[in-house]
Design a protein around this nucleic acid. Structure first.
Lengths: 295, 295
DNA sequence: ACACTTATTGCATTTTTTGCATTTAATAAA
DNA sequence: TTTATTAAATGCAAAAAATGCAATAAGTGT
């Protein structure tokens, strides 16, 4: 069986498969061929790319660098070729997404599972994290970010606006009383999401009020649990509380007063040709966000 | 003789050589081989890349797109490989520079001739123009820009600051009188460079004065000729008048008053790995600018 | 229409690629 | 330390491809 891959593409497979043999099996070729071609690549570059061992073969430092760079370049080349050959580009290869945990569960996962079903030759790696500042450039294709954008040399597409709500459980309000004026908030127990916004004064309309609380948690779902348990008032993303609001478990305070929302962005590397997998993912996620009320 | 080029690289050669035969001769291979490999590439992409003819063969529209994209990607891959293999990267391939005419003659050309002598496998294409807004992305590797940067998705490196001087010939001043106060400038004949700055009030120190004139020219050297011929006062880049000032043909007015300069930038596409040819060019040009008093 | 140049095709040859069987090397268990 | 196990490298022969030469076809300019 002939091989239709270049040595460089084969190298990517080997790194991702974790061993020469695994790569050979996935591609239906002889392991010796994999070995020979990697050696040939190493000789051309005059650098050892893989550290061989029985259990697993790892890329060397140079190999890791080469892998990261090549993956982008070859993805981009594929995008270019799809474009010029007027082929409907089909997402393929490995799509690596980084997103905040709770947002991802609600918005990203459905998109990824849909893409997974739709495109047979696509594999997916989802990194859930709240700390992925500089993950791009380390192999992440798309990162989702809530809040103002930092500088960065990345491209961005605005997916929508995260509206925020001030919520508390009816049990809590029963116990502590319903604040009828914004200034009354300072007398209440607050629950904060960690990060820049935590413990900052809350701005509602033109007014600003300093609030207090003892819980700071970096998980939206954990915060929702705390709210439902009546631990206090929380200023959080509307999407996380839609259900609880509908069921009446949670009450929205100052419903008619405007609260500043957060912009929501997809960040991806700046390149001339954006691979289909990235484009389709962002487009689908955008549609998803619009549809679910993050317009 | 074996060929060490991929079909894609060969395609770049063919486009640049202008015909299959020329490419074959440059590479020391048979023209039939060139033909076959281009056909093979066309079949893989399912698109006709070249329009064949006897005298010259041109890329089709798809071919042109593919050429532009590939050139960048392969340059970048080469930069990546040089980096990981710790090879001192040697500038090679085609370096395409766009720069304003007169600035290029004084600053860019020396750098390019030096690079041309230093690097045997480098070829150079210099586009002299004052209108090259969006040339990058159309095959230009580096563009030089005087003045404030527009937005753009390009990377930039500040090369220096173009200091400006207010100059006139002694003959002109003899005839029209030497302005001793800034407000007196409004009574003089001015010569303008075309563009945004033309005919705008001149700001010297804290003062601003509206000036008049009938010449607007988009050439620094032509403007210098006009100044030398005593046609009027000109606010122009200092570097263009250094010689004339030293020889006394031209007199600098309000020498001790600060005049706002223009920033000078090199713009180049945003990519993960900047090819050696681009890096070396910018670095050398930077040194050149610093040395010639554009710090 | 003719001369001339370039691209393409047929074919024989050389070179490279590939898989199988085997050897070598490395890790893990006894 | 020895042994069992698994992966990577190597020798070799078969298969596939890449290549150059010579001949043909196609396009350009006179």
């Amino acid at each position: 069986m002939a091989i239709e891959l270049s040595n460089e593409q084969l190298f990517l497979h080997v790194v991702e498969a974790g061993s020469f043999k695994a790569a050979a099996e996935q591609l239906g070729i002889d392991p010796s061929l994999v070995s020979r071609r990697i050696v040939s690549l190493e000789q051309r570059l005059n650098v050892k790319l893989m550290t061989r061992s029985t259990k697993r073969s790892y890329p060397t430092e140079a190999g890791e660098q080469y892998y990261q760079g090549l993956r982008k370049l070859l993805d981009e080349q594929q995008a270019l070729e799809s474009q010029i050959s007027q082929t409907n580009e089909i997402p393929s290869g490995k799509l690596r997404v980084a997103a905040p945990h709770d947002f991802a569960r609600q918005f990203v996962l459905p998109v990824l599972t849909q893409m997974n079903e739709l495109y047979a030759s696509l594999s997916i790696e989802l990194t859930l994290s709240s700390q992925y500042e500089d993950l791009i450039g380390q192999g992440i294709d798309v990162a989702i970010r809530v809040g103002e954008l930092p500088d960065s040399s990345l491209r961005s597409k605005k997916l929508g606006e995260v509206r925020r709500v001030l919520v508390a459980s009816s049990a809590y309000l029963m116990r502590k009383g319903v604040p009828t004026d914004i200034t009354m908030l300072s007398e209440h127990d607050f629950i904060f999401y960690s990060g820049a916004q935590a413990q900052k004064p809350i701005e509602i309309g033109a007014k600003s009020v300093k609030v207090q609380g003892r819980f700071i948690v970096n998980s939206v779902s954990a915060l929702r649990d705390l709210v439902l348990q009546g631990q206090g008032i929380h200023l959080g993303p509307k999407w996380a509380f839609n259900e609880a609001l509908a069921s009446g478990d949670v009450v929205q305070l100052f419903k008619d007063q405007p609260l500043k929302g957060f912009p929501l962005h997809a960040l991806y590397p700046c390149r001339a040709f954006v691979p289909a997998k990235v484009r389709v993912f962002i487009d689908t996620l955008y549609a998803q966000c619009q549809q679910q009320g993050l317009g």
